[in-house]
Amino acid sequence: MTSYRHSFLITLLASSLALTACKDDKPAPYVPNAPTNSTTFKNPLLPAGPDPWVYRKDNTYYYMSTTGGDITIRKTAKMSELASGVSTVVWTPQQAGINQRDLWAPELYSFDGKWYIYYSADPFCCAGHRVHVLENASADPTTGTWVYKGRIASPNQDLWAIDGTVLEQNGKRYLIWSGHEIEATSEQRLYISEMSNPWTLVGPRVQLSKPDFSWETIGDPDVNEGPEILKHGDKTFLVYSASHCSTDDYALGMLTASATADPMLPSSWTKTPTPVFTKNPANQAYGPGHNGFFQSKDGTEDWIIYHANPQTGQGCGNQRSPRIQKFTWNADGTPNFGTPVALGTELKKPSGE
């Protein structure tokens, strides 16, 4: 999630999602995603889509991003053809009789035969945003009824929180999120807490990371947010976004732990001192961040999805478009995300498409 610090004005966009951070935002240039042949595609996948998330179940990919006023799922069999996928608004707080605003960074999961969505919203109380949980027992998350399960927070530590994501390790589930140390601060840190069920935290929250390095403290406030889990071999990676989204220098950082370590112990995690994915002005990628991960349909390739602005100075608004690219692995087992590829470049479709 990006830490917006603005009250957003929701408007309709002809193509899809809506979220505008300031009145003078100019429309992002959109490179049509129609491939020149059956084996390639071009970024961006959509003209807008801050905080993109992808979850795969069976042969279907479910895509979500920040819209501001509702929660929408876009469904597709091929990530390279996301633009033609069916988009469904699955929940709005007004329909549920719940008073919330500024819905950000939804993430979809399938746990124990049910679907869950974790999202951030301001419930008009308690000094701002919290992470909230929805549940759906239908086989298809774009159908059936989504039930609001409430705010998810550590006991006695219900402080400002956004960008909830779930880690499964050693037979347990954990929520990881971006939050404030105390109510009076604006600095964002990464926290973890064990889950007793998909909507309840037990025990304390533990801090895993705070903005330490100069590349994490560009803009105001200092930010660690958008945590996402990536597993490979005997390692668990926590990839997060750092610096403020209002800057071109929003970038990805990384923590690494053993796949069998206790993730509640800060000593289990090692922080990479340099960013692992940064802006590329020559390729129209400013402020790349708030990513997700997925595999190709045949399971042979690893892909990252992220948002970036096509022009400098566009900040936290709806100019941020979702982009995907394949990444590789270094000899030491760490991911190599490379650099953001240029808009409009023909890329080979994910294997199996």
Results as ranks from 00 to 15, higher is better:
Y4L: 13
Y4D: 15
H6V: 13
S7Q: 10
L13G: 12
S15W: 12
S15E: 13
S16W: 12
L19Q: 06
L19T: 06
D24E: 10
D24T: 08
K26R: 09
P27D: 13
P29K: 10
V31E: 14
V31N: 13
P35L: 06
P35A: 10
T36Q: 15
L45V: 03
L46S: 00
A48D: 06
P52T: 10
Y55Q: 04
Y61L: 05
S65H: 13
I71N: 07
M79E: 00
M79R: 00
S80H: 04
E81Q: 12
L82S: 00
L82H: 02
G85T: 02
S87G: 00
V90F: 07
W91S: 01
I98Y: 07
P106I: 05
L108D: 00
S110E: 14
G113T: 09
Y116C: 03
I117H: 11
I117N: 10
Y119L: 01
D122N: 15
F124A: 14
F124D: 14
C125R: 09
C126K: 12
A127L: 11
A127S: 14
V131M: 07
V133C: 07
N136W: 07
A139Y: 05
A139V: 13
G144D: 02
T145Y: 08
W146L: 03
Y148R: 02
K149Q: 15
G150I: 06
S154E: 04
Q157T: 05
L159P: 00
D163C: 11
G164L: 07
L167M: 12
L167F: 14
K172N: 13
H180P: 00
H180N: 15
E183N: 12
T185E: 11
E187W: 09
I192C: 02
M195F: 04
N197I: 05
W199D: 12
W199I: 02
L201N: 11
G203K: 09
V206C: 04
V206A: 03
S209C: 14
S209I: 03
D212P: 00
D212K: 08
E216M: 06
T217I: 06
P221R: 14
E225D: 14
E225N: 08
E228Y: 08
I229G: 13
L230G: 08
V239I: 15
Y240L: 09
Y240G: 05
S243M: 08
S246H: 10
D249A: 15
L255T: 04
T260N: 14
T260F: 07
M264F: 06
T270H: 13
K271L: 12
T272K: 14
T274F: 13
T278R: 15
A282I: 07
N283A: 13
G289K: 15
F294Y: 03
K297M: 07
G299A: 06
T300L: 05
D302L: 04
W303K: 01
I304T: 05
I305W: 01
A308C: 09
Q311G: 02
T312V: 11
T312Q: 14
G313I: 11
G315D: 01
C316Q: 12
N318V: 06
P322V: 03
P322W: 07
I324W: 01
F327H: 04
T328K: 08
W329Q: 08
T334K: 13
F337C: 09
G338F: 12
G338S: 11
L347T: 02
L347Y: 04
L347M: 09
L347A: 01
K348H: 08
K349L: 05
G352P: 03
